Simulated scan of single mutants.
Amino acid sequence: MQLITSALDLVQQHYIFPDTAAEIVAAVEARAAAGDYDGLDDETLAARVTEQFLATSGDRHLRLLVRAPDHRAATTEAEAEAAWADGQRLANHHIATVQRLDGNVGCIDLRGVASPGTAGTAIAAAMELVAHTGALIFDLRRNKGGDPEGVQLWHSYLFPDSDTHLNDIYDGETGSTRQFWTLAHVPGHRYLDRPVYVLTSAFTFSGGEEFAYNLKALRRATLIGEVTRGGAHPTARHPISATLEVAVPHARSINPVTGTNWEGTGVAPDIATPAAEAMTVAYRLALEHVLTTGTSQAVLAEAREALTAFSH
């Protein structure tokens, strides 16, 4: 069918591993010739083709997807980008909550990583609200990924200057490698000399994994929770109809500390615990830090009361 042909053409043109792309095309064409995709609705077709993509490549980013309803009118790249940006704005750039917990512990529930071109103001506002806390928790347990430049901005708040090399991305289409370093300037206060805890789950994916992996490699955060899903290949989405699009990885991450990435393996936490318990573990550690470093009697009283509540 034409939809399958269009999807496979895009895989062959753009996939980061050309040899694997040829294997994927052969496998899907064989199933199509056998009639495995005949008469399927969009959801079933997308799931079945994606299943074959994964079986051949092991790449969780390579997918046939049903397009979001709000994006179906977007037929050009500019329209798709505008629809995407509007969705990011309405989702508050994936910043679900920003809290000051008792004991002066900051907590940011981050469900994705938006582009700083649209989300920079929101990211700066979130970091300003936790700027004076004694410890900081990033909750990435429901983070499904996003923009490497967004990761770069978030991480720039956690280091003192522009001298920290965060990540590299090799683009297979251009043969070029882009380096990502912390930024020389961030709006507001940097978050330095205080502990950072990152919560992960088996759902955490892609840009959320980079967020965790970079900080673990640089020993800037303690990761608490579960091994993440394992997707390290930056991806572009290409519409093939009003209702379907194919997501094709065209690049791969190369961490400057480890020389590799988390593709297929996920990011392992420093403290392994079920995702549902990760917040409790992190909050306890943060409170213990506040109690050993804090000077405000009001904050110390809050921290003692919050820590005591764990034993009841």
Rank of each mutant, 00 (worst) to 15 (best):
L10P: 10
A68H: 14
A26V: 07
A278M: 08
T260D: 13
A80M: 13
R89P: 01
V113S: 02
D163Q: 15
R237D: 12
I169L: 12
G58A: 04
A282I: 07
T200Q: 03
F159C: 05
G208T: 09
G225Y: 02
R229W: 08
H132P: 00
R178S: 11
L158A: 05
H250Q: 10
L140F: 13
Q179T: 12
D36R: 09
I240G: 01
S206F: 03
F159E: 05
P195N: 10
Y15C: 07
G145A: 07
A184F: 08
T265P: 06
V11L: 07
E245K: 02
R89F: 10
V113A: 01
V198N: 00
T273W: 04
L153I: 04
D42C: 00
Q12F: 01
W181G: 02
K144F: 14
I123D: 00
R219Y: 06
V25E: 13
H61T: 11
T174G: 05
S296E: 13
S156P: 05
D139F: 14
Y37H: 11
L307R: 03
D171K: 06
Q179H: 15
F53V: 01
W84M: 12
P187G: 09
A131N: 08
V227F: 03
T295G: 15
P187H: 15
G145P: 07
D41M: 09
E173D: 09
I137Y: 06
N104Q: 00
A114G: 14
T228F: 03
F310V: 15
S201H: 09
S253N: 13
G134K: 00
A122P: 07
R111L: 12
R72T: 01
L218S: 04
R60P: 07
Y191H: 15
Q297M: 06
T200M: 09
V196G: 02
G117R: 13
S296Q: 15
I24P: 00
A122E: 11
W84R: 12
V11P: 02
T50M: 10
H233W: 06
V25A: 11
V290K: 00
A275Q: 12
T200V: 08
L140D: 09
Y37S: 08
H312A: 12
I137H: 06
V299P: 04
H94A: 15
T56Y: 02
A27N: 14
T56Q: 10
Y15E: 03
V198L: 15
Q297L: 06
A298G: 08
R72W: 00
Y37E: 10
D70W: 11
F159D: 00
G35Q: 12
L45T: 05
V257C: 04
T258E: 11
A282D: 05
A96T: 14
F205A: 06
R190N: 09
H93F: 15
K144P: 06
A55H: 14
V267E: 02
A96R: 13
L158H: 08
L307G: 04
Q2E: 12
T56R: 04
T293I: 04
V113Q: 03
N214S: 14
H71V: 06
H289L: 04
A125I: 04
V151F: 01
R219N: 14
V196P: 00
L129V: 11
S156T: 11
A124Y: 06
G188P: 03
H238P: 00
R100E: 08
L136H: 00
A68K: 15
A232W: 09
T260Y: 07
F138T: 01
